[in-house]
Amino acid sequence: MGVYLAALFSLLVIEMAILFVLVLPLPQRMRRWLYTRYNAISSNKKFRTYMIGIMMLVGLLFVDSWKRSQVKVSTYRDQKNSFVINSVTPVDALASRAYNQRNVYISGFIIYFCICILTVMSILRRIVEWNDKVKAGDAILRERLKQKQKYLKKLQRKELCREKRS
């Protein structure tokens, strides 16, 4: 029980660290590096298979813990029905409910952070691609600007020649 809980908690901490790094205002070079690493890792079939398996197990744990945490808790004795012997919930049931609620929170946050990481990586991909297009466009715009400056200088020379003639 402790090993799987430690593994889940470790996965949660790793996801939080990844998400923290992704949302930092990093320079473009670092963003591009993160995106290329993510793209290389996510295109690996073994990694995708492992992640799908892990997320399926976490999803099953979430559903199972959710169902088990819905135990009805009564902390009083039913005075109207004298045939009910144990209407007060035992401590073991309360402890089991608390453990299952904890598992719901941990597995739910793991699923949530996985979705957040995918969303942030999608945004990061768009930023990297847009910045690459802007840089490529900058080179084109600089070339056009040079051409227009040359054309403007020619026009200025012609204007100076006209002023000198008149």
Rank of each mutant, 00 (worst) to 15 (best):
V13K: 02
L26M: 08
V21W: 14
V104L: 01
T36K: 10
R48V: 14
V91L: 08
S43R: 15
N81S: 12
I127L: 06
I52P: 02
T49I: 07
R126T: 10
L11S: 03
A17Y: 13
N44V: 08
V21Q: 11
F62C: 03
A7D: 11
V84N: 00
S42F: 15
M121W: 04
I18K: 11
A93G: 03
N81W: 07
F113N: 07
K80T: 11
S122L: 06
G59A: 05
D138L: 00
L26I: 09
S122E: 10
L12P: 05
K46E: 11
T119C: 08
N44H: 13
V104S: 00
K67Q: 09
N81T: 13
Q70H: 06
Q101D: 09
G53V: 10
I123V: 12
P27F: 01
A95G: 01
L118E: 15
Q101C: 12
S65Q: 09
L34H: 05
K133R: 12
M121L: 14
M56A: 14
W33K: 08
Q101L: 12
P25V: 06
S69F: 03
S82M: 03
L12Y: 13
M30K: 11
D138W: 01
M16Y: 13
N131K: 03
V58D: 09
T36H: 11
I41Y: 15
S74M: 07
A95K: 06
T36F: 11
I110R: 00
V120T: 12
N39H: 15
V88Y: 12
I110D: 00
F20A: 15
S107E: 00
Y38Q: 12
I54K: 07
V21M: 14
L124W: 00
Y99W: 12
L94G: 05
M30H: 08
R48N: 15
S82F: 07
V58L: 08
P25C: 09
F109E: 05
A7T: 10
F9C: 06
K67Y: 11
K133D: 00
L94M: 13
W66Y: 14
I106S: 03
W33I: 02
L11Y: 02
R97Y: 01
L8H: 10
N44D: 14
I123R: 03
P27G: 07
R126W: 12
D132R: 07
T89Y: 06
F83S: 11
L118Q: 15
I41E: 13
G108P: 01
A40K: 15
S65F: 06
L124A: 01
A93I: 05
R31W: 00
I110P: 00
I14W: 04
M16S: 15
Y38A: 15
M16A: 15
I106W: 04
G59P: 06
R31F: 01
V73G: 04
Q28A: 07
A95D: 04
R32A: 07
S65K: 07
C116Q: 14
T89R: 03
S65L: 05
N39S: 14
L61E: 09
C114F: 09
L34C: 09
